[in-house]
């Protein structure tokens, strides 16, 4: 009774929460429930028919799906290995800049690509990688390398993903490491200087060890999104010549679902991805909490 009275008293609070909650229920909970389509056959009219694991059986025996999984894992691994360390290195370099004006210039410029849409970035890179007049090939030619049409080359396109991902995110992602560096006590560097430590020694023996926990945390949190592999990038960089080596889970779901209208089958593929994603996110969240006390939420 007391609780009821209190709830009535607080009606304004519930009223203020009503719209936000309603939004989540309609646009989040209902489609979440709609994932049951993975176990059904889609009917335009009338109820969908339950078909159990049918779509999953087709999915797991399809060679297209196997190649999509392989692409997703390869592209994600390449990004973890080659993209992940760059912002750390960049933050160490920026930290060595003593002139605040130059530092500000560098930071303002390298953060910029993070705010551009993937469509714009694709436009910029298509022009940059143009086989005849593109900047990359001009520089390559200067060093005696032959021109390559990188966007349509199966051997190169995944590396284009890696490099354009660095171009877009390395600057912005260095912020978190710079913030961690700022928190290191200046006294440590003073003491090291008195002991005659060089700048390089200060970097390896003071800065890097202090970055360790941030690096581990960011690394683990990134793992939680391993199955994404960067949908927007692939979607905008993809073309028919390279589709076999770049098609990832999310683009596959888009193509067979929205493109071909195989709604139920596409939902099965995306549910499969979602389950792995949740296991990864929950797993990394709890591991991260244990190691560093910092989680996804």
């Amino acid at each position: 009774m007391k609780a009821l009275r209190r709830m009535r008293q607080d009606w304004v609070l519930y009223a203020m929460l009503a719209l936000p909650i309603l939004y989540f229920v309609i646009f989040h909970v209902i489609p979440l429930y709609g994932m049951k389509l993975a176990f059904q056959d889609y009917r335009i009219l009338g109820d969908h028919v339950w078909v159990g694991w049918k779509h999953f059986n087709v999915l797991f025996s399809s060679p297209a799906f196997a190649s999509v999984m392989q692409n997703t894992i390869i592209i994600s691994l390449m990004k973890i290995i080659f993209v992940f360390p760059i912002p750390i290195a960049l933050s160490l370099l920026i930290n060595e800049v003593r002139s605040s004006k130059y530092r500000k210039y560098v930071q303002s410029v390298v953060y910029l690509p993070h705010f551009l849409s993937w469509v714009v970035i694709a436009g910029i890179w298509i022009s940059l990688l143009n086989p005849t007049e593109g900047g990359v090939n001009l520089i390559g030619n200067f060093f005696g390398l032959p021109s390559v049409d990188y966007m349509t080359s199966k051997d190169h396109i995944r590396w284009v993903f890696v490099v354009s991902e660095i171009w877009r995110s390395a600057g912005w992602d260095s912020i978190i490491y710079l913030a961690a560096i700022m928190k290191i006590s200046p006294g440590l560097y003073e003491a090291a200087k008195i002991d005659g430590a060089t700048r390089l020694q200060q970097m390896t023996f003071i800065t890097l060890p202090h970055l360790y926990s941030t690096i581990v945390t960011v690394f683990i949190l990134n793992l939680g999104f391993f199955m994404n592999a960067g949908f927007d990038q692939v979607f905008n960089f993809m073309n028919d010549s390279v589709i076999s080596v770049v098609d990832i889970l999310d683009t596959y779901v888009y193509r067979i679902g929205i493109g071909n209208g195989q709604f139920a089958y596409a939902t099965a593929a995306s549910l499969f991805k979602g389950v792995i994603g949740i296991v990864l996110i929950l797993g990394t969240h709890f591991i991260s909490k244990r190691i560093s006390g910092k989680g996804v939420w």
């Binding site: 519930y14 389509l37 549910l271």
Partner: peptide, 28 residues
């Protein structure tokens, strides 16, 4: 502070972790 606040916060975390797929959103 109100009755049910913890429930709402839990709901939000669930929302954050469980993303619906593309197709059900499209059909909605």
């Amino acid at each position: 502070n109100f009755i049910g606040k913890k429930l709402v916060l839990l709901f939000l975390i669930v929302i954050m972790v469980f993303e619906p797929g593309l197709i059900p959103e499209y059909l909605l």
